[in-house]
Design a protein around this nucleic acid. Structure first.
Ligand SMILES: [Mn+2]
Ligand SMILES: [Mn+2]
Ligand SMILES: [Zn+2]
Ligand SMILES: [Zn+2]
Lengths: 141, 141
DNA sequence: CTGAGATATGCAACACAGTAGCGCAACGAA
DNA sequence: TTCGTTGCGCTACTGTGTTGCATATCTCAG
C-alpha cells in the first residue's frame, strides 16, 4: 500500500522521461495519498515526517508537477493554491470549498456547463466551476 | 454624466439609511463608472486624481460596499480581489479573466449550470463560474 | 445647541503566500 | 573525467490584505 504509492509516484515521473528526484517523488507521493487537494503548508507538514524539504523548492516542485500534468492546482477563496494529483480521466471537474473548515474537494463527477454564447470578441480557453457550502465533516448535527 | 454618477452613488447609499461618507461616495462612484471589475490598486489610482484615500480605509470601504450589496467582488487567478458595482438584477453571473492582459469582465448574461448531484453530505451554498481565455482587446489581429 | 456614544478614518506594524537571485550540488552526455 | 545542464537551498524581497489603536466625524437624545 505505502510502497505501491511510492512506486506509482516514481513510475509516473520516469514515464515522462524526467528525473525522479527525491523532492519530486516524495511530493507526488503526498499528493497521491491525499484524498483531497492540499495547500503548500499542508504538503510541507506531510513531508516533514520524513525530513524537511525547502519551502522554495516545494513551490518549484509543485509548479513542475502541474506543468508536467501530474497535478492540478485549485485556487481557494483564501488566496491559497491547493494541489491534487491529476487522475488521467477527470479533467475540468468542479471543486467544492467548505465555508466552515475551508477544506477543498475535487468533484470529479461534476463539470461546468453553461450557455456558451460569449459576447463577441471573447475567445474561451478553460472554465472553472467552484462551489461553496458545507462539507460532510461540517454538517450541523 | 459625471454628476449623475455622483448622484447615483450618493442615493444608493442613503437609500439604505447609511452614512454616505466621502470615502464611500467616491469609491462607489469609481466602481459605477468602471465598465469592468477593478482591483484595489486600480481603484486607488482612479481615486488619486481627486486626492488620496488611505489604503486601509479603501479596503474597509470595499468590504462595506460588498456587505451592503452595493458591490460584489471576484477573485482573480492572480490572488487579487476585483470589485464591481452590483446591478440589482444580475446575481451569480459568470466572470471572464483574460489570460493575456488579466483584465476581468462580468458576463451578466451567463450563469453557472451543473448537474446538482453533489456527493452525499455536501450542502451547496453558492457557485462561481470563472472562464478564462482572451478578451476582445487581446485578440491576435 | 450641546455633549456622549457610535461610527469612520488614518497611521504603523504585521501576517502570509508566493517569488527572485544566486551559489552550490547532483546528474548525465561526451 | 570533464563540463554543461538541471535541481536544490538559502536569503532577501514583493504584493495583497489585516490588526490594533488613536483621532476625527457624525448622530441623536436631552
Ligand atoms: Mn480537482
Ligand atoms: Mn461580476
Ligand atoms: Zn468542512
Ligand atoms: Zn485581454
Amino acid at each position: 500500500m505505502t510502497n505501491s504509492t511510492q512506486a506509482h509516484a516514481e513510475v509516473a515521473i520516469t514515464n515522462l522521461g524526467e528525473r525522479a528526484t527525491e523532492a519530486r517523488r516524495r511530493t507526488l507521493e503526498v499528493l497521491l495519498r491525499a484524498e483531497r487537494p492540499l495547500s503548500h503548508t499542508e504538503i510541507e507538514a506531510a513531508l516533514a515526517a520524513r525530513g524537511v524539504l525547502d519551502r522554495v523548492t516545494l513551490y518549484r516542485v509543485l509548479d513542475w508537477l502541474v506543468a508536467k500534468g501530474l497535478a492540478h492546482k485549485i485556487e481557494g477563496h483564501d488566496r491559497v493554491w491547493r494541489f491534487n494529483a491529476t487522475a488521467d480521466d477527470a479533467r475540468g471537474h468542479a471543486h467544492f470549498c467548505c465555508t466552515d473548515c475551508s477544506k477543498v474537494y475535487c468533484l470529479t463527477g461534476i463539470k461546468p456547463a453553461f450557455v456558451l454564447s460569449l459576447p463577441p470578441g471573447f475567445r474561451l480557453g478553460e472554465a472553472d466551476l467552484s462551489l461553496r457550502g458545507t462539507c460532510p465533516d461540517c454538517q450541523p448535527r
